[in-house]
């Protein structure tokens, strides 16, 4: 199934942005390597939402880290806390660690999203969906 999700994600990115599928690798960063913009991102998410009948938000990328922190703040004034950064490293193993330095904003983390991370987001949503039915 994982592989299947990757193929669908690849297709969604290719359709939305006109990028050749072969160029879309698991480790490719959507914003930095594939140069998509935030409108393309909405387009990609909409395609995946329709494909899998799930709801996706880019901010979901931080969801698990936020949940792990419980009452501890994940961000203060949009800057991710030290604990928030640690939680992100634990919860999103694929995130480029060198980018996770104190001072980065929530928005900057979103910009680090890779194809593989997007696949994971879809997978988590699909699991949540099967658990709730």
């Amino acid at each position: 199934m994982e592989n299947n999700i990757f193929i669908k994600v690849q297709e969604a990115i290719s359709d939305s942005c006109g990028i050749e599928k072969e160029e879309i690798k698991g480790h490719s960063s959507l914003f930095n390597d594939l140069n998509i913009d935030s409108i393309d991102m909405v387009d990609i998410l909409y395609t995946l939402e329709s494909e899998y009948d799930i709801e996706l938000k880019v901010s979901d990328i931080n969801k698990e880290a936020i949940q792990e922190l419980g009452d501890e703040p994940f961000e203060i004034d949009n800057i991710i806390t030290e604990k928030g950064l640690q939680a992100l490293k634990r919860k999103i193993p694929d995130i480029p660690k060198e980018g996770l330095q104190y001072g980065i904003s929530v928005h900057e983390v979103i910009r680090m999203i890779s194809v593989k991370m997007l696949c994971n987001m879809v997978e988590i949503k699909l699991l949540e969906k099967t658990e709730s039915t």
């Binding site: 359709d15 387009d43 909409y46």
Partner: peptide
């Protein structure tokens, strides 16, 4: 309403 209609239009 515009936002919701834009999603399929983008496709």
């Amino acid at each position: 309403l515009t936002r919701e209609v834009l999603r399929p239009m983008m496709k």
